[in-house]
Amino acid sequence: MIDILNALALLANFVIVPALAYGSQLALGALGVTMIYAVLRFSNFAHGETMSFGAMISVLSTWGLQEAGITIGSLPTALLALPISIVATVCVCLLSDRLIYRYYRTQKAAPVTYLIISVGVLFILSGVIRFIIGPKDQIFADGQRFILKARAFKEMTGLDQGLAIKTTQGVTVITAVVIVALLFWFLNQTRTGKSMRAYSDNEELALLSGINPARVVMITWIITGALAAIAGTLYGLDKGYKPFTYLGLVLPIFSAAIVGGVGNPVGAIFGGFVIAFSEMLLTFAYKRVIAYLTPGEWVPDGLMQLLATDYKLAVSFVILVIVLLIKPTGMFSGKTL
């Protein structure tokens, strides 16, 4: 019995808790991609860099706040910096729409044109980010490191296995829950939110109902920018801010969005967790879990790891491929908010 609990604690410590945090970050990222897709109908390759931009503003604001001696006790200061980062990222999104994307809407450009345009934005953003903060890693998580320390857990439960929950992980999951709840309330209960869903569902009919497309597009960028800033900051907080990793995040984020069905917010969240849990479960070394669950002589020699940790990214790709082969529209057939 104790062994089973130990095995569970082990799994929780190395798979469930990290996957919950990572899944929340992916879900927030995928929500941004999916919102743009649902309303503006293109795949925004620049979303990863938008997240990175948000994270960078958070890093800089955090430094500023720390300099000024403003912190919030045991919680990371970055939480205070988050509103600044949201405002800045939203401004960047609105500016990019005003200067770049809007013109192509009046031209009724093909989706692939937007894709290429988003590559241009991707270039500019990554240049701006590296120009401002440089290419090096920045750690900006402060406050208390752990909500639950491994030793405290052991003392509490009397198990051999520790379970640690980092503050950043807790903050990530709680923030994500709050944000997602707010977003769904907005989309389903408010007049503006419903008009966005209507526009995404049937553009022509939305016009015939007197819905102003310019306003819908603007609100979409505001929400996307906010989501990107939050997702980027949480990811950077959890794993350290590395400017170059965000381009690599585009793949798992798009996979998450497609798994759930592009354009569908519930699907994006679901997809985020599917990707995160698959990555963790497939790259976890099960040797010690098996050791707890079986008599000693059965313990295998190898690590019992299905896939080397380096191939995390391949997991999201394989899931993407499976979805494309079996159900390209995703689990929650998409294209609507």
């Binding site: 419903k194 869903r197 209507a198 569902d201 049937n202 022509e204 009919l205 939305a206 015939l208 609507t336 908010l337």
Partner: peptide
């Protein structure tokens, strides 16, 4: 009232 797709199907 258009002829086709005249309702918001997901709503």
């Amino acid at each position: 009232v258009p002829q086709n797709s005249n309702v918001f199907t997901s709503m």
